[in-house]
Amino acid sequence: MAKKIMTCEFAFVPVQSHDYIAEVETVLDIIRECGLEYNIGEMSTIIKGESDKIFALMERIYNDRYDKSKFIISVRMSNVCGC
């Protein structure tokens, strides 16, 4: 079976944070360690790779931050862009 490749635009937005930069950096560290291709921008990060690995990354970030902060995660996914 062919691998499902996708491109994902991901933004993590801390809410009511006293140190939002540290929270964003924590999430970016998780992305840097994931082994997927990524490009960190000023407003969002583009991640490319196998869909199951991207979904696992999203779940890891969600679970890691769930009890530590309030946040919004915005995700846009495509099976066309950049594949």
Rank of each mutant, 00 (worst) to 15 (best):
2 A>H: 09
12 F>D: 02
13 V>D: 04
14 P>A: 07
15 V>L: 15
15 V>D: 03
15 V>F: 11
16 Q>H: 13
17 S>D: 10
18 H>Y: 09
20 Y>Q: 07
21 I>T: 14
21 I>D: 06
21 I>H: 08
25 E>M: 12
25 E>G: 03
26 T>C: 08
26 T>V: 04
27 V>S: 01
28 L>G: 00
30 I>S: 03
30 I>R: 03
30 I>T: 06
32 R>G: 03
32 R>L: 05
34 C>Q: 05
35 G>Y: 12
37 E>F: 11
37 E>T: 14
37 E>K: 14
38 Y>V: 02
39 N>P: 00
40 I>G: 08
40 I>S: 09
40 I>E: 14
41 G>K: 04
41 G>Y: 02
41 G>T: 07
43 M>V: 05
44 S>T: 06
45 T>R: 00
45 T>M: 02
47 I>S: 01
47 I>W: 00
49 G>Q: 06
50 E>P: 05
51 S>T: 04
51 S>V: 07
53 K>H: 13
53 K>S: 13
54 I>Y: 00
55 F>M: 15
55 F>H: 14
56 A>Q: 05
56 A>I: 00
57 L>G: 05
58 M>V: 15
58 M>K: 09
58 M>E: 10
59 E>L: 12
59 E>A: 14
60 R>N: 13
60 R>Y: 10
61 I>A: 04
61 I>R: 05
61 I>Y: 06
62 Y>M: 06
62 Y>K: 11
64 D>P: 02
66 Y>K: 15
66 Y>T: 09
67 D>L: 11
67 D>G: 11
71 F>R: 01
71 F>Q: 02
73 I>K: 06
75 V>W: 05
75 V>H: 02
75 V>K: 01
76 R>P: 01
77 M>A: 07
77 M>W: 00
78 S>Y: 09
78 S>T: 14
78 S>F: 09
79 N>Y: 09
80 V>G: 03
80 V>F: 13
81 C>K: 06
83 C>V: 15
83 C>P: 00
